[in-house]
Amino acid sequence: MMLQLASTFSQLSLSQYLVLSSLLFVIGLVGFLTRRNLIVMFLCTELMFQAAAIAFVAFGRYWFDFSGQVFVIFILTVAAAEAALALALVVLLYRRRSTLNADDWMELCE
């Protein structure tokens, strides 16, 4: 018998979650590459984090290994830290140019 787990978690379930995760990740990536708004770009990275988190949890569930969830905690940490710093930088940039358009920052060109 299986205690504490309401249902089984087969390879099929895992693959479903993984496909979902990869789709979310790809959507996040495409969003990052296509949106010009700096903040939305960061949101897209958060989306990619989210996708990774789902994959982590799914694998953790598959193997009954809670490191997966622990890593999600770390993902949350990094996401929070990133949000704090990145948003501060965005604010900084916005003050200079009054725009959130990533294409307006071309000084790295040569």
Partner: peptide, 23 residues
């Protein structure tokens, strides 16, 4: 800049390859 996606084609191609691979 918020209303139009920039170069969706390239981005989608990249995404396609990635999605295909991972899926």
């Amino acid at each position: 800049y918020d209303r139009f996606a920039r170069e969706p084609g390239a981005a989608v191609i990249v995404g396609l390859i990635l999605a295909g691979t991972i899926v």
